[in-house]
Design a protein around this nucleic acid. Structure first.
Length: 782
RNA sequence: GGGAACAUAGCUCAGCUGGUUAGAGCAUUCCGUUCACAUCGGAAAGGUCACAAGUUCGAAUCUUGUUGUUCCCACCA
């Protein structure tokens, strides 16, 4: 039993919250197995049996797994308040609630952090360790760090089943995630191929489009002349504009708009590519913007994603006049390929050399300073070098159709509704998903090669692979030749495993079903009910869960997606370490309490809307908690002589008009709160709830009823002694008791700590739940 | 270039499918208290609902346009 003392003085969360936390943790109230009727924890089998018979009795919400290292900031924690609100609501509504917590290994960022924060101090690096040593030690490091992140989840009041907390690299999870890869491979939805990728020369890995961001910079645009092989009329050359002259060494065509009158007579003609003396054709594509530069685009398919797309399109429509690509920059950022003296220069040196050669040959026209947006690595901020590389891809064409349909036909609802467009737009434009990363920290590909695997950036500009010294066209070819195999375990002596690990989102994209399957709960708790996360990872994460969930289970992974806004720092800016405006839970939880912080997240806010940390609001929230505290204490001592109020029926009391009014208000409020929570409008109804408690119950009703409750006047003489007055007093006491109970329950999902603490002193029937977490929600009809 | 959201009191924002006199919190001004609470109570002041046109008996709310702010996406070489 909870033993919470009603101490004197103002409400002090520093006393109450740790005590409540300890109470929650000591019992197992947050487990779906906890049985409110028997007050026992059922077995897993009993739970499954019940949910099989009554599937409507479950509520599953998978908590988005935060990075396993380090402490989250106040913004990272905000989601837990929403997730917990839903969990507590449905639990009180009598459902078997599972909030499933986990931690993510965070791929690239995890590797960067552990190298910087852990290994560097010991003088270790990837050069001085084996892959196995690195993995084992990092695993241990992350396991330690995880405990700290868990503390914050608990501290904000998240009623998750923490015993089930699971790491993305837990062996059973790994096995399941890799099985998905195998199934994708069998279904021909995964392939290995040489494609253009966003290459981070610093992290030495490929990145998906969404793992890059754009940086603004001023850079010169150079105008370069390419002579025509044969002059057309008096035209002897064309001029192209570029910000990256060194890539001209890999040009394979010139592209003009088919309708551009200036160049119509040049279609199909050839230019002599300067410096490397290659003849390349002039082709057409409607994507070329006639207004930009000279209207002539130099096509470098190996080092510009747009050019690569144009090449594919052209080749599809003109198979007889197909153009190829020539890769001239290797993964280290050095020049390579059929480029003569430029080979082995750094790309910067090559750029200067190209420019000076053009000048010398009188082919240099001019330069103009221009602002441009260049892609950089989201994690390390290095400039992305697009290049050709052999990578694993997921074929998304079919998967994205299903994922689109699920949302457009309403099997999955996104809140706020207007974010649906963001999702559909992104999904429609989705290209094949590159899933391999050249890292050590993550899920290594379950792919094996016989002998060795070599990737060559050839002198001919090709990128090719050899397995055991034998050249292969592609992975399928290698499998056919018996040189490669997809398998979770080594096929035997002499086979080596693919060095790549999976993109982090490949594993977190499977989170809903791999977590439940680990616990044997897939049958009875999947699909989950709601996914709650920040709107900034709708595309990054939510979309992947929908695609992979549909693929692997044939079912949607969740029915509703609630997207919360971004919490800004006190200065209104996004929180970031570099700005120095990061606020942690520790900074504020002592002064205001977790309940006040949860209110800041939720009260008055709506889905998708951002807001900032506001100390004035926090102070207001703290004042409200104090109001609850004092009003409750008042009710407790002024109803102390009321016997077993739960046995009393309303009809047996002579209720005054004021009693009836507040009872009616609170009952109407219950319906509203229930309805709005179910409609995901948590924040706005919270304002009504607070208003009602503070201004109807405290300011009005409590003042009205006081005179009827006193048993002595100021001089100490007995008052309210007549039978009518006694009955009136009793009716007032009962009303206070009843109404406060309703308020505490309605408030509990919002401010769980104070309501739990007060619930211990609230007079309740012996059959009622000892924890407010499992008492019945007060609405009657919904 | 495309898309989305927002524009309401000094500040931060509510106002859901159009219906009396447009609301809350904070801030401001005045008044009040000693038997829950000064982390309090009562009251006041404060708004051409960005602008314009339209639909309507009626518009902060719906439509269109204009202006401004924010965010996202994209191929400006």
């Amino acid at each position: 039993m909870a033993n919470f003392e009603l101490f004197k003085g103002p409400y002090n969360p520093q006393i109450t919250e740790p005590a409540v936390l300890e109470y929650w943790e000591r019992n197992s109230f947050s487990k779906p197995e906890y049985n409110a009727q028997t007050k026992q924890v059922d077995s897993l089998d009993e739970l499954k049996k019940e949910l099989t018979q009554h599937p409507e009795k479950k509520f599953t919400l998978i908590n988005p797994p935060p990075n396993a290292y380090g402490r989250p900031h106040l913004g990272n924690i905000s989601g837990y308040a929403y997730q917990d609100l839903m969990g507590r609501f449905w639990r009180m509504k009598g459902k078997r609630v599972l909030l499933f917590p986990g931690k993510d290994h965070a791929g690239i960022q995890g590797e960067i952090v552990v190298l910087r924060e852990h290994f560097r101090q010991q003088g270790k690096s990837k050069q001085t360790m084996t892959r196995e040593e690195f993995y084992a030690e990092t695993y241990e490091y992350f396991t330690e760090m995880m405990a700290a992140a868990l503390q914050d989840e608990k501290r904000i009041g998240l009623s998750a089943d923490f015993e089930r907390n699971v790491f993305t690299l837990d062996p059973t999870i790994v096995k399941n995630v890799l099985t998905t890869f195998e199934k994708l491979y069998e279904a021909n939805k995964v392939y290995k191929g040489v494609r253009i990728v966003n290459w981070c020369t610093s992290c030495q890995t490929a990145l998906a489009d969404i793992d890059t961001e754009k940086k603004e910079r001023e850079a010169p645009m150079y105008y370069l002349r390419y002579p025509l092989v044969e002059p057309v009329g008096n035209i002897t050359h064309i001029t192209v504009a570029t910000t990256r002259p060194e890539t001209m060494l890999g040009d394979t065509a010139i592209v003009v708009h088919p309708e551009d009158e200036r160049y119509k007579q040049l279609h199909g003609r050839k230019v002599l590519l300067p410096l490397v003396k290659r003849e390349i054709p002039i082709i057409t594509d409607t994507q070329v913007d006639r207004e930009v530069g000279t209207g002539c685009l130099k096509l470098t398919p190996a080092h510009a994603p747009e050019d690569y797309e144009i090449m594919l399109r052209w080749n599809e429509n003109n198979p007889d006049k197909a153009v190829g690509w020539i890769n001239v920059i290797d993964p280290q950022g050095m020049m390579c390929g059929p480029i003569g003296k430029f080979r082995d220069m750094s790309s910067d040196a090559a750029m200067n050399q190209v420019l000076s050669d053009f000048k010398e040959q009188q082919l240099y026209e001019k330069e103009e300073l221009q602002s441009q947006r260049i892609p950089v690595c989201e994690r390390c901020k290095s400039i992305i070098q697009p290049l050709m590389s052999s990578q694993w891809f997921i074929r998304v064409d079919e998967m994205k159709e299903q994922a689109l349909t699920a949302v457009m036909e309403g099997s999955i609802t996104i809140h706020p509704k207007y974010m649906t467009k963001k999702y559909t737009h992104w999904m429609k434009n989705l290209r094949d998903w590159p899933i391999s990363r050249a890292l050590w920290w993550g899920y290594r590909f379950p792919v094996w090669y016989k002998g060795s695997l070599e990737t060559t950036y050839g002198d001919d500009g090709n990128v090719s692979e050899k397995i055991g010294g034998i050249a292969v066209n592609d992975f399928a070819d290698a499998v056919a030749q018996g040189l490669a195999i997809v398998s979770q375990s080594s096929p035997g002596e002499g086979w080596i495993q693919d060095e790549n690990v999976f993109d982090t989102w490949f594993s977190s994209g499977q989170w809903p079903y791999v977590t439940l399957e680990k616990e044997g709960l897939l049958d009875c708790m999947y699909p989950t009910d709601t996914m709650e996360t920040g709107y900034d990872i709708l595309e990054l994460w939510v979309s992947r869960m929908i695609m992979l969930g549909l693929f692997r289970t044939g079912k949607i992974p969740f029915k509703d997606v609630y997207l919360h806004g971004i919490v800004k720092a006190e200065d209104g800016q996004k929180m970031s370490k570099s700005k120095g405006n990061v606020v942690s839970l520790d900074d504020l939880v002592g002064e205001f309490g977790a309940d006040a912080i949860r209110m800041l997240y939720i009260v008055g806010n709506k889905a998708g809307a951002s807001y900032r940390i506001d100390r004035e609001k926090l102070a207001g929230n703290r004042n409200f908690l104090n109001k609850i505290w004092n009003a409750s204490k008042y009710v407790f001592f002024s109803t102390a002589d009321l016997q077993e109020p739960w046995e009393v029926t309303q009809a047996s009391l002579s209720l005054a008009e004021e009693d009836k009014a507040i009872i009616a208000e609170v009952e109407k409020l219950s319906e509203q709160v229930s309805k709005k929570i179910q409609n995901f409008r948590f924040g706005l109804v919270a304002v009504d709830l607070i208003q009602s408690f503070w201004h109807s119950f405290c300011d009005v009703y409590l003042e009205q009823v006081k005179a009827r409750l006193y048993t002595k006047d100021k001089e100490g003489n007995p008052i309210n002694t007549s039978p009518e007055q006694q009955a009136s007093r009793r009716a007032g006491q009962w009303t206070l008791w009843y109404v406060l109970g309703v308020y505490l329950k309605l408030l509990h999902p919002y401010v769980p700590f104070i309501t739990e603490y007060l619930w211990a002193s609230y007079p309740k029937s012996p059959t009622d739940s000892e924890t407010i977490m499992h008492t019945a929600w007060p609405d009657k009809h919904t």
